[in-house]
């Protein structure tokens, strides 16, 4: 039942090259009669950074929730790496390699930075269900966890409770935890929100780096970052796709300019 019907019509703006890893066709979601998202077609490609932008309330986070199955779509179909995931549970989708971050900083506040990253590693390394072993066996994961902590500049906070970190640091920790799962498709919901300028630069560099070997779909309000690192941009407005294409094409689109009413620079 998988491939052909969904893959039949390619999304409007076709880019050559990298294979499509995540596809949505005719995606829609209603909340008690209110249509939050309708008729969204997306093609997310391997080794590309795909931005999802749009004014507040455009339905960007709802699209994220639909793609990661935290919300069940009312209409449409989603395909990940050739498998139809429209009816799957969110944890099963995560295990297939589609991993998301959250708009609010999603860390485990009572665990340390090291423990936060280790939680991501425990399941793939089969150290999650043993209730008879001491916690010390998790030290086996420390080197691997430290490599992500170091990469994101969190080394000096390694043993700090995540809840005591600054807002920007929590976002960085969340990215470290997400990367620890080595996802095939990475969905980042406003990864740079609340960060200082130097952290934005660091995280942008990391996203570009990790996108060499995986697809990245990100919601981002910082348009200079979008212009800088994203290969493809989808603009949402009132739950529908307004425009798709590379940044220059989209930015030149008069409808997009109207939607942003001067907030776009």
């Amino acid at each position: 039942m998988s491939a052909s019907p969904v893959m039949a019509q390619p999304a409007p703006s076709d880019q050559a090259g990298a294979p499509v890893v995540l596809t949505a066709r005719g995606l829609g979601r209603d909340f008690h009669g209110f249509t939050a998202v309708s008729n969204v077609d997306l093609d997310v490609r391997h080794a590309q950074i795909h931005a999802l932008i749009g004014p507040n309330g455009a339905g960007k986070t709802t699209v994220f929730n639909l793609l990661t199955k935290f919300l069940q779509p009312t209409r449409g179909q989603i395909e990940l790496l050739g498998t139809d995931i429209t009816r799957m549970k969110p944890e099963a989708v995560a295990r297939m390699g589609l991993v998301r971050s959250f708009q609010i900083s999603a860390v485990f506040p009572n665990l340390t930075v090291l423990e936060n990253v280790r939680v991501a590693l425990q399941r793939p390394d089969n150290l999650a269900t043993q209730f008879w072993l001491p916690m010390g066996v998790l030290d086996r994961l420390n080197d691997h966890a430290d490599s992500f902590i170091d990469r994101l500049g969190l080394a000096e906070y390694r043993d700090t409770r995540a809840g005591d970190l600054s807002y920007g640091r929590k976002r960085v920790l969340e990215i470290a935890t997400t990367l620890a799962l080595d996802p095939k498709v990475l969905l980042l919901d406003e990864p740079m929100a609340g960060m200082g300028q130097e952290d934005v630069q660091m995280v942008a560099a990391i996203i570009r780096d990790v996108a060499r070997e995986r697809a990245v779909l990100m919601v981002e309000h910082n348009l200079s970052v979008v212009a800088d690192i994203c290969d493809h941009v989808t603009v949402l407005q009132r739950g529908e796709i307004l425009a798709q294409g590379d940044y220059d094409t989209v930015a030149a689109d008069p409808r997009v300019r109207t939607a942003y009413m001067g907030t776009e620079d």
Binding site: V107, V119, A128, L133, M135
Partner: peptide
Amino acid sequence: NSPFGMILRSIRDNEQRAISLGY
């Protein structure tokens, strides 16, 4: 105080995040 207990604490702290990590 086991690997299982660590996952329980993570669920207590942030269930949605634990789901998104595949648990």
